[in-house]
């Protein structure tokens, strides 16, 4: 019952309700892992599905993510490490010379709410830094964003640099950003292109299935 309530509170972006329900659940002896998986994340997943269906939009995702974060903060010390099952690890970045982060952050939010572990390298990330992050974190997926015709070519440079570094095999690469197209994705040898954030989460699932 409280898990359903919690899920609905996240789905409707009701942060205060989440902040009231988590302590209540813990006091009632509910497993913290259930509060996370069957409460908070279940609510976010339900909202994500409605976002994909075009029933809700970015504002609803933002307030839901805020409610979700408020809940996870309260659960932080209660969870046993390693108990969460991740759908996969993603490294995400906006490429060199490009400071646009809205699209990247939306994709990040959708990936996290779908159950991926996401490592955010931020914006204006040089080619070498992306390669280094892949080497270090060994992600399943690398996701890259570029919003300018002058910076999208760095997506190609990164694919090439990963090949040279011997890191391309076994890694899936997703790209996106306003000027980017499926044609460009095919040309540079990336694995997947998505025009929007919900599509990116679907594409990530498809790449690893």
């Amino acid at each position: 019952m409280i898990l359903e309530e919690l899920a609905i509170a996240v789905e409707t972006g009701d942060m205060k309700k989440v902040q009231a329900l988590i302590p209540q659940g813990l006091a009632d002896g509910v497993d913290p892992q259930d509060l996370l998986d069957k409460g908070l994340l279940a609510g976010m997943a339900a909202l994500g599905a409605r976002f994909k269906a075009g029933e809700v939009f970015v504002p609803e995702v933002l307030i839901a993510a805020r409610a979700l974060n408020a809940g996870t903060v309260l659960l932080k010390d209660k969870l046993v490490a390693g108990q969460s099952v991740s759908k996969g690890k993603v490294v995400i970045a906006t490429v060199s010379g490009d400071l646009h982060d809205i699209g990247k952050n939306l994709v990040l939010m959708m990936l996290e709410s779908t159950g991926f572990e996401v490592i955010d390298l931020g914006v204006d990330v040089p080619v070498e830094a992306v390669v280094e992050a892949v080497r270090e974190n060994k992600p399943d997926i690398l996701a890259m964003s570029a919003l300018l015709t002058t910076t999208m070519a760095f997506q190609k440079d990164i694919v090439e640099a990963l090949k040279v570094a011997g890191l391309r095999d076994g890694l899936k690469i997703m790209i996106g950003g306003a000027p980017v197209t499926q044609d460009f994705c095919d040309n540079i040898g990336a694995d997947s292109y998505s025009p929007d954030a919900p599509g990116a989460a679907d594409a990530a699932l498809a790449l690893l299935s």
């Binding site: 015709t149 000027p179 980017v180 197209t181 044609d183 460009f184 040309n187």
Partner: peptide
């Protein structure tokens, strides 16, 4: 006319 067409 798409930027992509003009650039690529």
């Amino acid at each position: 006319v798409p930027a992509y067409t003009l650039s690529y």
